[in-house]
Design a protein around this nucleic acid. Sequence first.
DNA 1: AAGCTAAACCAAAACGTTTTGGATGGGGGG
DNA 2: CCCCCCATCCAAAACGTTTTGGTTTAGCTT
Lengths: 345, 345
Amino acid sequence: MSVTIRDVAKHANLSITTVSRALDGYADVAVSTRERVIALAKQMGYAPSSAARQMRRQRTDTIGFVISSLRRDDDSRPFADPFISEFVAGLGDEATHQNIDLLVSVASPNENETNIYRRWVLGRRVDGLIVNRLRERDPRIALLRENNMPFVASGRSDDITSYPFIEMDTQTGFSLITQHLAAQGCKRIAFIGARPDLRLQQDRYLGYLAGLQAAGLSPSPELVEVGDLTRQGGYQAGLRLLVKTPRPDAILGINDMTALGAMRAANDLGLQIGQDIAIAGFDDIDDAQHTQPALTTLRQPVYDIARQLVQMLLDLLRDPTQAPKQIMLQPELKVRASSKFLNPK
Amino acid sequence: MSVTIRDVAKHANLSITTVSRALDGYADVAVSTRERVIALAKQMGYAPSSAARQMRRQRTDTIGFVISSLRRDDDSRPFADPFISEFVAGLGDEATHQNIDLLVSVASPNENETNIYRRWVLGRRVDGLIVNRLRERDPRIALLRENNMPFVASGRSDDITSYPFIEMDTQTGFSLITQHLAAQGCKRIAFIGARPDLRLQQDRYLGYLAGLQAAGLSPSPELVEVGDLTRQGGYQAGLRLLVKTPRPDAILGINDMTALGAMRAANDLGLQIGQDIAIAGFDDIDDAQHTQPALTTLRQPVYDIARQLVQMLLDLLRDPTQAPKQIMLQPELKVRASSKFLNPK
DNA sequence: AAGCTAAACCAAAACGTTTTGGATGGGGGG
DNA sequence: CCCCCCATCCAAAACGTTTTGGTTTAGCTT
């Protein structure tokens, strides 16, 4: 049906070998021949079949990323996760830039996630994978290791030997932002976290505790609530916190979406954010600077991280024996109006 | 290196034919054999090589989507486009659900976009494509047609015969929302549009004009500004509009991001939105209901559209001769606080 | 003139499946 | 006892490349 290298060879009165090598720019084909072949191929609309090429080369020139959606069934708004979309943008941009393809899949955490990984890994559908939001004793990592499929991670799991990753020093970051809140005069700083099996929950919570300690404040269990990284979860956790007496005078969200939800909760209860209560988040998503008041947060260069992850993965594919590059980045504190606190009692 | 069907056949003392047919559930292999093969394959960690399968079947079980980023170089925030991320989420979810893969690429409109399409189409990298944000006389459509690569579109181009699409009746929608603004008492309703070669600009602008006419208002060129579908573009166009005298008493954005930018502009100029000026958008992105005040807009079920597009594409792949399904959806008016107008002069 | 080298080309194998068109053997019907 | 049929299995071809290990020819050296 569509034009193959054989057709081009026939039209050029050459062997398919020569056509192949001409198009690939080998030196053992005459310049005149090469030019003729290239022109003919273009004119005939020939491009090598990716399947055949993959098969022969044992390489797909494709990397994969599985979005583990943590959406719950009752959530009417799937995937409204700016973190993920910025991450995917970075992956896509860099992949395109490096002339490889990006295969994407969306999985609910338990159901089909493993199936997708299994199919991609065993079927050699991709050359390597990007993995994020690692969990403790992550079964995905185990699968990838067993079948020695190259991968890089954003964030790390428990066993960090043997694979490259980029990680934000969220623990230090959360300590800093907690201290910033304390420096505004806040005494009862609440924290809205996430499921405890998420690695990021542990790091960030520890950072929060460290920040409290550094500021000379003592932690209190009733100032800690569990959300689910979404705005909705932040809203509900925020309401739960704000009806307590004495009321918290600051809320630190595990991510910006959670913080935005908490802002809305405070708003609904008639509180003036940046006056009656300070609120801060983590990520610095696009919205953070566009809320009223703008959200104090820790900037995480998600887009750049994603791009660099792709580069690291490609490096790894080129030389699988190299020592895994492991990078730790410091988040940058972005102080905005939401973390002011003007009414100490 | 990794386990092939030949290895499984050897271990099972069977031909590769029989193993293949056993795994595919053909009737001409004994039940006992099938079970034995399936168990063995699982135990050995066998899954068919996708490249070999693609090659033999002449089918990839993959669909593609190229994100045409309309980001400008000076924009520090790439891809912060909720519309696109929700769209990709829908595509990904449905593709996973239908057991096919989604190949994604990011392209700047002119540069490499055509290259990606060419590579995917000529190299039979995908079975079909999803195309959105069509342009007039869209070169992508021409390429796809020439190489008869199946595709479905969201929104339509000039020549709508022969391919399936889903389209919002944006023209009627913009007429309605313009009339809604007029019904609030607004007399000078401004419009922030986009590049005139975008199909959506034409439809929406015409709808705006129709709405003005229906409300008995006459259009004025100085009430129309050009943005670029981003918040930033909306902000700047908003500023340009709001310093004019007499000032517009309503701003209609071509999409929500534009409207959000305009809201920010109004805010910066000290105007009370929903009081001194009415503002409305189009899309109903997640943020629209979370701004202060919440944004009046027309709801476009992006996620559902994306899912349905995937289904339409798969239908087309199954039966390429069928008449193209072409669907027109009515957007739903979501009246919120931003479109109130309390200070008629 | 024979031998050698380099330039240009090519036949065939291999990648791992699926599918086509049988082959084989045992049991039942005549 | 022979034939046929059904159940079960399989050899080989094909999918479209890339790569290996050549061959051929012309020109140059001695």
